[in-house]
């Protein structure tokens, strides 16, 4: 099959076609275990493409979390460490400090980064570690079967909030990205998504910037990727992306929050306050 594809590619090139897009070699040939349509795959692809385009494959050390992306190390053809749940920023801190010429990134989900790893996340950011953190937020614990995450929306159903998340019982969705932007140690803080071609292009530019920033040694670069969990949300991939736009985005607005160490113009100061009213799902 692969030979057929290769032959077809050669044929097209001979016919005068130019290659617009093909899978990067920084991804291994391993088939990703993610559910069909999951944003993890797209996000992996973008990181790998950025590493490829920057020509830094031999300088990258990645850190995978515990959660759906625990096996990320099988998919990137770069050196990788697999951390205990929530501890990736601690690993990345030491990797970077002991190997300052490497490009170090963590790849974490919302349970890993914003629940069990809150302390490691905040302190790595506050120390201004020169690393890139990729935070995939799908508002749910995917790997363990769809339980409530710190980012689960108010009113949103999950395996442990079967009647919807209640503020009086479960507190508020945690906007980690806004919170981190208030720390002087963060240099670049942004929230992106990968549900359509335009969003993917912007997300890739953000990831590129977050990696390029490591050369400047001015602090931590943090990219939240808003993603779907179609299995956990119990929807088709296409419906899940639509649901994400309708429900997640009002609570987790897309765009840069902090660039080059400064809060972006037009960012409502209230958005940085954690008790800012949140949309309640019906």
């Amino acid at each position: 099959m692969n030979q057929d594809i290769e032959a077809r590619k050669q044929e097209l090139l001979k016919e005068g076609y130019e290659e617009v897009y093909t899978r990067t070699k920084v991804l291994t040939d391993a088939v990703m275990h993610y559910c069909p349509g999951c944003g993890h795959g797209t996000t992996h692809r973008l990181i790998a493409e950025v590493i490829d385009e920057m020509g830094i494959q031999d300088q990258v050390v990645g850190v995978s979390p515990v959660g759906c992306s625990v096996l990320a190390y099988n998919y990137f053809d770069v050196d990788f460490q697999e951390a205990a749940h929530g501890r990736a920023p601690a690993l990345a801190t030491a990797i970077k400090r002991l190997n300052p010429d490497t490009f170090v990134f963590t790849y974490q989900g919302d349970g890993d980064l914003a629940a069990i790893g809150t302390a490691e996340t905040i302190h790595a950011a506050n120390r201004g570690e020169n690393i890139t953190m990729i935070f995939v937020n799908n508002g749910i614990y995917g790997m363990t079967g769809g339980q409530m995450a710190p980012t689960t929306l108010v009113g949103m159903r999950s395996a442990t909030t079967p009647y919807g998340r209640r503020v009086d019982l479960n507190g508020y969705p945690l906007r980690m990205t806004e919170l981190l932007s208030t720390l002087p140690g963060t240099y670049y803080v942004t929230r992106q998504s990968v549900q359509n071609p335009a969003a993917v292009r912007k997300a890739k530019a953000a990831i590129r910037k977050a990696f390029e920033n490591q050369k400047l040694k001015k602090g931590l670069s943090f990219v939240e990727i808003l993603s779907n969990c179609n299995s956990g949300w119990k929807m088709t991939p296409v419906a899940a992306n639509k649901w994400m736009e309708d429900n997640m985005m009002p609570n987790y607005p897309i765009g840069d929050i902090k660039v080059d160490g400064k809060i972006c113009e037009g960012i409502d100061a209230n958005r940085l306050v954690l008790d800012h009213p949140l949309t309640v799902m019906q």
């Binding site: 130019e18 617009v20 991804l27 944003g39 797209t42």
Partner: peptide, 20 residues
């Protein structure tokens, strides 16, 4: 038209795009 929109959103990178 070789716009690569499909490839952009493919989580598994299974689409290669060519144009002339």
């Amino acid at each position: 038209i070789g716009c690569a929109s499909c490839a952009m959103v493919c989580p598994d990178g299974v689409i290669s795009v060519y144009k002339k």
